[in-house]
Amino acid sequence: MKSAVIVFPGSNCDRDMAVALERVSGKKPHMAFHKDTDLPEVDVIAVPGGFSYGDYLRCGAMAAHSPIMRVVKERAARGVRVMGICNGFQILTEAGLLPGALIRNKTLKYICKTVDLRVESTNSAFTGKYGAGQIIRIPVGHGEGNFVADAATLDRLEGEGRVAFRYVTAAGAVDAEGNPNGASRNIAGIFNETRTVLGMMPHPERAFDPLHGNTDGRAFFDSLLETLS
């Protein structure tokens, strides 16, 4: 599995993502700078977390218009897998690769904690190694993770099985208690129409190593490896 990680000014989870990708694939990811206008051939592109362009204007808005994103869009159109984590999810929605938007958390506060997620679809290169409906624990860290879209879009996402993860309580209930940011219908991650592009607010690369005390994110990367190598 060959991979690339995009580095915007202000990205800060680029290294963590690269470590996880390298550990699972044995290959060093290509680190692409925002000004780059080309990418080597890769199987998966990661748009990492952080504060691209300082979150100025709107989270992800400026990054979505950077030169490298033109390349990312071309590759996505060709079916190359693209994943956006946290700020990367915000960028992918701003770039039009995913529907909806991420707005300020309902609490109006940044939130960093480990949350319970339910795996809503195992039918993708990102989630194949999870069990359907499995509850996993993955950290979040964001101030703008509240996923919104109009009702028709939400219905479509649900109807087409394009919800990847939902926030739940430890007991698996989809309710306000289990929802850290107020996201519509507790949605934590979604796919595009072809399930080749994924955006999610939680950070699987932060639940990867035994040091993290939780390795529930490992299957995310193992899924990619299994599909893409």
């Binding site: 800060n12 996880a20 960093c112 040091l211 993290h212």
Partner: peptide, 14 residues
């Protein structure tokens, strides 16, 4: 307080 701080970035926090 501490849930408003990113304590995990770097993926080296034990």
């Amino acid at each position: 307080i501490w849930e408003q701080y990113d304590s995990q970035v770097g993926a080296d926090t034990r």
